[in-house]
């Protein structure tokens, strides 16, 4: 009885509890909980600023009243030159999250991909400067060349290019709604 049933059960319980405890400690020491909930950290913003809003002095998280499923966060420039809008759109491989910098006149100053599940070396090329530079200075409703717009899609990655363009449009739209609050 002891050898057949109780001892194996006890051993498995001891191992599981021990492993669980050690992982709980590691979880807290490594600060995983903060990583999971936080939006873009100040360090992330500093890193993204040159490609998103080179003219901005400092980006700070701003709370806005607009409710939108694709809006992840608004980061206003303290110098008043505009704001960076963090949006999520549906890409080819999953969520595509982009941070779009928009100046006070409502024109794009730059953009960066913050999270993507696009096909490596194909759709993932939408995060490269060659593609993103096309958006700088643009405003209004944008579209890729295949849809009669002015944005040249990445070859072989129309869906990813379209998703990125949709994200920029969404950011521009949201900016128009929130600019009064900033």
């Amino acid at each position: 009885m002891y050898k057949e049933i109780i001892k194996p059960t006890l051993v498995l319980i001891i191992i599981s509890v021990l492993v669980g405890t050690l992982l709980a400690v590691t979880y807290n020491v490594a600060g995983i909980a903060d990583l999971a909930t936080a939006g873009l950290s100040q360090a992330d913003l500093e890193e993204l600023k040159p490609s998103v809003m080179p003219a901005a002095s400092s980006l700070k998280n701003a709370s806005v009243s607009v409710e939108d499923g694709s809006l992840l966060g608004v980061y206003a420039d303290e110098g008043g030159s505009g704001a960076a809008i963090h949006v999520v759109t549906k890409g080819y491989g999953g969520d595509l999250k982009i941070l779009v910098g928009i100046d006070a006149n409502g024109a794009v100053t730059g953009a960066a991909v913050t999270e993507s599940a696009e096909t490596p070396n194909l759709g993932s090329k939408v995060s490269e400067p060659a593609f993103i530079e096309q958006f700088v200075g643009k405003s209004g409703a944008l579209a890729v060349d295949k849809d009669g717009g002015e944005i040249a899609a990445v070859a072989g990655a129309t869906i990813s290019s379209r998703a990125f363009t949709d994200g920029v449009n969404k950011a521009l739209e949201i900016y128009e709604q929130v600019k009064g609050e900033l």
């Binding site: 191992i15 492993v19 050690l22 992982l23 995983i32």
Partner: peptide, 17 residues
């Protein structure tokens, strides 16, 4: 499996941070 899963979770915590 519990021991292996423990180490895998540890590695994923480390890589993530």
């Amino acid at each position: 499996i519990v021991i292996i899963a423990g180490f895998v979770t540890f590695v994923s915590f480390m890589l993530r941070s």
